[in-house]
């Protein structure tokens, strides 16, 4: 709608929107600020907003006490590896459904999505039991597999919607030009779908990073990622706000940054393409 809007109207909009935006963002902002306070300042009454003695000591305490790096590493491995394996499995599957659709592809696609709807708690014990039997409890391998499986439907789905936008003609042209199936996927489809594959990667890293049900229930100490690391702060222990804030900031910072890059794809990924 290219229409002149009065400056006054725009100013009012801006003011309201910023106020609400800051209000919604405030808990995150407050957490980040608190992480730089001393414990005493963190609970001072009235609360101090910006004028306190900035310190980094909470970060070093958190790191020393709970070996933050190990949890971070676990999170990175689980999110990263599960997403990459997922994409490797999903690219051929999405190719099949997007470019060689059969009467069943639609059903298969919907069925895959429906597995995503399976409430985790309904299958908690069997998975728990299988993990014990296979010695996968509290292991990175086991958790990575589970997280890959719960996100696989979304990965297939997202890639499918991106592939759908690539004209079949171009793949057929490649075939006429003498490309084998492998060459067709490698030299033509993948380069054309790079933006889509990247968005899929990003969104699924975020989802895997924040996955809490299985990471809380299937890990103890060794393979626990950041979700579990934070959960260990759930029982109050004297003055700990600043430390909690520092730990929280470290846990969410990487993903907040990734998230800001992927906000557009988020809609497509999470609504299964029903809203574009």
């Amino acid at each position: 709608m290219a229409r002149a809007v009065t400056t006054q109207r725009k100013t009012i909009n801006t003011a309201i929107a910023w106020a609400i935006g800051l209000l919604i963002f405030f808990p995150i902002l407050w957490t980040v600020l608190t992480s730089f306070k001393t414990e005493a300042q963190a609970i001072s009454d009235p609360p101090v907003f910006l004028f306190f003695d900035w310190t980094l000591e909470n970060y070093s305490i958190v790191q020393e006490r709970s070996n933050y790096m190990r949890y971070l590493w676990n999170s990175v491995i689980i999110a990263g590896v599960s997403t990459i394996i997922g994409i490797i499995i999903a690219v051929p599957a999405a190719w099949s459904m997007a470019f060689v659709p059969s009467r069943r592809s639609k059903d298969i696609l919907l069925w895959m999505l429906s597995t995503k709807m399976l409430p985790a708690v309904g299958v908690l014990y069997p998975i728990y039991l299988l993990f014990i039997k296979m010695g996968l409890l509290d292991s990175l391998v086991g958790l990575t597999i589970v997280v890959m499986l719960i996100n696989l439907p979304i990965i297939v789905w997202m890639l499918y919607t991106y592939f759908k936008e690539i004209p079949v003609d171009i793949l057929e042209a490649a075939r006429m030009d003498g490309a084998t199936l492998r060459e067709e996927i490698l030299y033509v489809l993948t380069p054309m779908a790079i933006p889509g594959i990247a968005s899929t990667l990003l969104l699924n890293v975020i989802l895997a990073w924040n996955e809490a049900f299985w990471t809380l229930n299937l890990t103890a100490a060794k393979a626990a990622p950041l979700t579990a690391f934070i959960a260990s702060y759930s029982s109050p222990e004297g003055l700990f706000y600043a430390k909690l804030s520092a730990a929280s900031t470290m846990a969410i910072a990487p993903i907040l940054i990734l998230g800001w890059f992927s906000q557009k794809q988020l809609v497509r990924g999470l609504t299964f393409g029903a809203v574009k």
Binding site: P167, D169, I170, E172, A173, A174, R175, M176, D177, G178, A179, T180, V188, P191, M192
Partner: peptide
């Protein structure tokens, strides 16, 4: 025989050029 081995070349309606 698969398309690539038939010794034919095709020009598509959409041109089907490789955009990248």
């Amino acid at each position: 025989i698969p398309p690539a081995k038939r010794g034919l070349a095709m020009v598509f309606q959409s041109y089907a050029l490789y955009p990248h």
